[in-house]
């Protein structure tokens, strides 16, 4: 495969998140070489079940992101409820309790914009099912930095508003089924 080497994957999902993530993430092997950074809109309850639900279904390790943690491959990092998740230049994670961005904390845009800055062309950004427009600006930033944008096909998403908004902001992003997205994620790291 041509193009710059991919160093990380960033995913944003809202309404229908668990359903979409439960199709994609279990496809990734335990030794998947890339880190997968995930923002899901959740109620601001501090004890979220999302990490444990996904952990049960995945071979790749899943954890809630910790502040100033070094990002490593083979790990899915979930933004904790009520905190923004950001990527630092030195590729550590930061959490922030700044104001919600367009009503969301964590905000997909905030993750995508900071990850685009840290990884440039080495980033794949994915917008999944959701009933708002978070992630659209962020996906634009990822594509502007030379990264790749993927969007769950709106007609297959439980909630299509977020994929629609992402494709509108970022027409060069590819609309795909969840299965195709999983296949793409396996393809970019080459045969194992």
């Amino acid at each position: 495969m041509s193009g710059p080497r991919v160093a990380a994957v960033a995913v944003g999902a809202s309404a229908g998140a668990l359903e979409s993530l439960s199709v994609i993430l279990p496809e990734l092997p335990e030794d998947y070489p890339l880190p997968v950074l995930v923002v899901v809109h959740l109620p601001p309850d501090r004890k979220s079940l999302m990490a444990s639900l996904l952990r049960e279904r995945c071979r790749i390790a899943v954890k809630e992101a910790e502040d100033k943690e070094r990002i490593v491959g083979g790990m899915v990092y979930l933004a904790p409820p009520d905190y923004h998740l950001m990527v630092e230049e030195d590729r550590r994670l930061s959490l922030s309790s700044e104001e919600p961005v367009r009503y969301s904390r964590p905000s997909i845009d905030v993750l995508f914009e900071t990850a685009a800055e840290a990884y440039g062309p080495g980033l794949v950004g994915i917008v999944l099912s959701g009933a708002n427009s978070d992630g659209a600006r962020g996906l634009r930033a990822i594509c502007d930095a030379g990264g790749v944008g993927l969007v769950q096909s709106p007609d297959q998403a439980l909630a299509s508003a977020m994929p629609h908004a992402a494709l509108l902001a970022c027409p060069e992003a590819a609309a795909m089924s969840l299965g195709e997205i999983a296949k793409h994620l396996l393809g970019i790291v080459g045969p194992s």
Partner: peptide, 9 residues
């Protein structure tokens, strides 16, 4: 300060 957040602000 953490750069990502500070730069955003």
């Amino acid at each position: 300060y953490s750069t990502a957040s500070l730069k955003r602000r």
